[in-house]
Amino acid sequence: MRILVVDDSKAMRMIVARSLRQAEIGAFEMAEAPDGEAALALIVGGGAFDLVIADWNMPKMTGIELLTAVRNAGLEVDFGFVSSETTQEFQKRAKDAGARFFVTKPFTPEALRDAVLGGRA
């Protein structure tokens, strides 16, 4: 599985990577981007990602703007959020835009695993 982790915090990108390893989700390769703009370039540039895990609040392009841009580009890559935004409103907006899951920070490796693996064929 190829996973793109998008967060303006390098610490959080590392924590997501560590959590995915601890949660034993299976073999994966991980790429990183510090904002939505950089992530979009990787995705439309043929990154062939199976999953994008994005923060919501980021400079240049937010996570929801990234998801919207990805869908507008006709790309159906699996997408989830890991964010400090914890309200139902944000979770609904994410779902409506086509995100499969929404994990709130702080999270446990188990919560991330359940979200990443949940609903996958």
């Binding site: 609040n57 964010s83 400090s84 935004e85 914890t86 709130t104 920070k105």
Partner: peptide, 24 residues
């Protein structure tokens, strides 16, 4: 980075118990 993420997590979670809508 680490300090910012701590403030971000506290602020984001606190926002959920405050009047909405609001922006972080």
């Amino acid at each position: 980075d680490a300090m910012g993420e701590i403030a971000n997590m506290i602020g984001g979670n606190l926002k959920a118990v405050l009047p909405a809508p609001s922006r972080l």
